[in-house]
């Protein structure tokens, strides 16, 4: 017994090292799990408000780029309205209803920034700013300046002006943390636009412009340049949101699945403003799916 005690005292530093490393390792393993991406205080008030301060300074230096981005988005929305108005001539009743519902249901939230309701599937779009981000890791994240106060909850989809961005992971009162498409724990249910073949989109380091489309079987008709969109098979994203474009394609002699490279629609280098998708019937859908 005394020998054992002496041994423990002699190696106490080494044992402490082992103990602390084990604790750290447990943190790593727990923190890396998909659902807990950023659970360790990522969305808490202290780091959030520091990041917000940082963003307030940074935003002055990129006003020009932000303006350009917003203008571009405006142009796109205008084009869409024109498109809808044109359709209206063809099918007056239906399209007028769609157009009016998407404009007249415009409402304001607490900050006076508009949230607007998409007409077709009861998705509400909540605008948000990216106040911090990473793009050089295996598990990247974005921090947004909207939180539970604005109605954000985990598992909501996030889209940018060009396409899908990611999925909300954790939420605090004023902030939320998003695991973007460029996070190795994220799998996006996607489909090939032209034939509705459903496959899974998954990214891995280091190229943040490209991801892989998995599970596309040999017999499927797919080619470089095909558009990939969301499948709509989850409540996170509605169907037909842009994901990317097939940029490289290969099929070995004996392979039963394609190797497909997809150029992502969203450029994570210059992402500043996004929209969070709030699905009105989420609880209903969850409860009926789990019954």
């Amino acid at each position: 017994m005394r020998n054992l005690l002496q041994l423990i005292v002699r190696y106490s530093n080494f044992l402490l090292l082992l103990g602390l490393e084990v604790v750290a390792f447990i943190f790593v393993v727990r923190g890396n799990r998909y659902q807990q991406v950023a659970a360790s205080g990522a969305a808490n008030a202290v780091t959030g408000s520091i990041q917000l301060m940082q963003d307030n300074v940074n935003s002055y230096f990129r006003l020009r780029a932000d303006n350009a981005q917003l203008l571009e988005e405006n142009a796109k929305l205008n084009a869409e309205i024109m498109h809808l108005l044109n359709m209206q001539e063809n099918d007056t009743n239906v399209c007028r209803a769609v157009y009016e519902s998407s404009t007249s249901r415009f409402r304001s939230n607490s900050e006076g920034q508009g949230a607007y309701v998409s007409s077709d599937l009861d998705y509400t779009f909540i605008p948000a700013h990216v106040i911090a981000y990473s793009n050089d890791r295996h598990h990247n994240y974005l921090t947004l300046n909207k939180g539970s106060r604005d109605g954000i909850t985990p598992d909501m989809g996030v889209i940018g002006k060009d396409g899908i961005v990611g999925v909300v992971q954790t939420v605090s009162t004023h902030f939320s943390v998003v695991a973007p498409v460029i996070h190795e724990g994220i799998y996006i249910s996607s489909m090939i636009s032209k034939n509705n073949y459903v496959a899974t989109l998954h990214w891995h380091v280091p190229d943040i412009r490209h991801a892989e489309l998995e599970d596309v079987a040999r017999h499927v008709n797919v080619a470089v340049g095909d558009t990939i969109v969301t499948s709509g098979l989850s409540a996170i994203f509605p169907a037909n949101m842009p994901v990317g474009v097939v940029s490289k394609l290969s099929l070995g002699e004996g392979d039963s699945y394609y190797d497909i490279d997809v150029q992502l629609a969203t450029d994570f280098h210059s992402l500043r403003t996004v929209h969070i998708l709030q699905f009105a019937h989420r609880n209903e859908l969850d409860s009926i799916a789990n019954r």
Partner: peptide, 15 residues
């Protein structure tokens, strides 16, 4: 770790 949302990683290195 707290600031970089990477629980345990820097703790392991620093210890």
């Amino acid at each position: 770790d707290w600031f970089t949302h990477s629980p345990g990683i820097h703790m392991a290195g620093c210890v």
